[in-house]
């Protein structure tokens, strides 16, 4: 089913999406916010530019964006997947605790800020290009992978990655010698078990966007993890 989003506001568009059970394509989207917020059991394809907070609180739906997406995609999402064929704005995957976000291009600032994991929930975000500053700020769980495709000699992440990170895992393509990490995390070369785990995410990325997983995985990767699961335990007193 095709919905012409032109001249429809966010509320109306979301109401139309909720009414239908079959897969939907939104055409002519231009800045409508909160699309598919909280939705489960839906398959949505978006042509045009969706507005901020696309797929906020997403609960199982699948969203494909054919072009770029704006800020706060997948804010607090719980399950489902969001696939962006272009680049993505700031704070992608803000506090997500489940589901997957795949971005073909670059991510803006603060991607994966306060991502977390809960019991069987393990959120995953794969960024094909580069990421801006404060990647994984306050990351508390889940997995962030940055592939740096097309970055050539540029740094694949901006300043201050992993600030306040205290859980989860980050994969960054390359040796990351030019990246300064905070003292509470450890950055080490990915070992074979890490690469096995990464292969799962990269293969899914390559299936979506049509590229060669072996080639990507043939380069070295760096794994970043926090030193402690509870860095604030001894902030005032050991207990």
């Amino acid at each position: 089913m095709v919905i012409d989003a032109k001249d429809l506001d966010s509320r109306t568009l979301n109401a139309r999406l909720r009414e239908t059970q079959e897969p939907c394509t939104l055409v002519g989207c231009c800045g409508q916010r909160f699309l598919a917020a909280g939705m489960s059991d839906k398959e949505i394809r978006i042509e045009g530019i969706p507005g901020n907070a696309l797929g906020a609180y997403l609960n199982g739906a699948s969203i494909t964006v054919c072009a770029d997406a704006q800020d706060a995609v997948g804010d607090t999402m719980n399950a489902g997947e969001i696939i962006v064929h272009g680049s993505i704005g700031d704070t992608a995957g803000y506090a997500m605790r489940g589901g997957k976000i795949f971005v073909k291009g670059n991510a803006g600032y603060r991607a994966g800020i306060h991502m977390k994991a809960y019991q069987e929930k393990l959120p995953v975000m794969v960024i094909g290009g580069t990421a801006g500053s404060f990647l994984g700020e306050y990351q508390a769980g889940g997995v962030i992978a940055v592939l740096g495709l097309g970055a050539e000699n540029r740094k694949i992440v901006g300043f201050f990655p992993c600030t306040g990170m205290h859980g989860g895992k980050m994969f960054l393509r390359g040796t990351c010698r030019d990246i300064v990490f905070p003292s509470q995390v450890t950055a080490r070369p990915a070992g074979s078990s890490d690469m096995e785990e990464l292969r799962v995410y990269v293969s899914e990325y390559c299936d979506l966007f049509g590229c060669n997983a072996d080639r990507i995985l043939s380069s070295p990767f760096t794994v970043v993890t926090p030193d402690s699961k509870n860095p604030y335990k001894q902030m005032y007193a050991a207990n």
Binding site: G31, I49, G51
Partner: peptide, 16 residues
């Protein structure tokens, strides 16, 4: 502030 606004001014804007 948002790409959507640029697309209104020029749907075929490049190098975003």
């Amino acid at each position: 502030s948002e790409e959507a606004s640029i697309r209104v001014m020029e749907p075929d804007a490049e190098h975003i």
